[in-house]
Amino acid sequence: MMNFDYSRATSLEEAATLARHPGAMLLAGGTTLLDLAKCEVARPERVIDLTRLPGLNTITVGESGATIGALATMSRVADDHGIQRRYPAIAESLLLAASAQLRNMATIGGNLLQRTRCPYFRDPAGYPACNKRDPGTGCSAIGGITRDHAVLGTSDHCIAVYPGDLAVALSALGATIQTNLRAIEIEAFFLMPGATPERETVLERGEIITAIAVPATPLAANSTYLKVRDRQSYEFAAASAAVGLELDSDGVTIRDIRVALGGIATKPWRAIAVEDALRGRRLDEGTVREASRTAVDGAKSHGGNAYKIELAPCVVARAILKAGGIQ
């Protein structure tokens, strides 16, 4: 790890000013930043520690919605009874992520900004070509081992998966990211790689996430997160789905539904086609399985990741049926 200067920000304004300097990086739980600094993927010249900033770790769950401070840890949010009751998909996505130790360290703001686990990205010495890490150098994954790479939202420049779980739940629940400058809807927050895979979100230099706001809706209160992976615990998703489901008073007609996928795309992936195919329809297994196939519309295999195109619709269907109390 290269050496760096360290300063502990005492106010949001100070942190933002310091963070505008080229070479400066913000530090929250450090579980992404220090990991990548050790691989020399991140090379901060100055690290600005946000963790002592006052007032940024509160969790408020009210009638109209929840606000989660950016510095709240994953474990605190997962353990919050209000979140568990009104936003189960959020609590579940956090509990199924990483390990107990990491969840005690990692923050909600940092979680959204975690970087891809593409092994080529993480290994600058072994694989000099990586457009995301070093723009213009090429992509070592295309034509390489692609088992964990994306099938949706890819470009000729990068096929790396967005690895996080929480952001998938937040996409399904229509969350908004609040920064020191503005509020950004989660749909607009993450960018697809296109020709600039190094740019992953719309955040500007010096912009700091302060909180995440989630609207209280009936479908949020009846939401779930399902994660399928190579081992039962402590692993990133091979494919995952977050579903919020609201039924009519008859208990079988789908009034509203929102679906997002993880582990298969370059950003948290809203499956609007699945939602449209199911809104107003009867909740039964055949209908759900048929509609879930549209989750992978436009998917492209790179060989090793072809299985994700088969797997994802099954995960979506299971998650919808689970939210509907059928499975």
Binding site: Y6, L27, L34, D49, T51, N104, M105
Partner: peptide, 12 residues
């Protein structure tokens, strides 16, 4: 709280 010392800066 249980945490990982390898991903924690001593100064933190």
């Amino acid at each position: 709280q249980r945490v990982l010392a390898c991903l924690t800066l001593a100064v933190q």
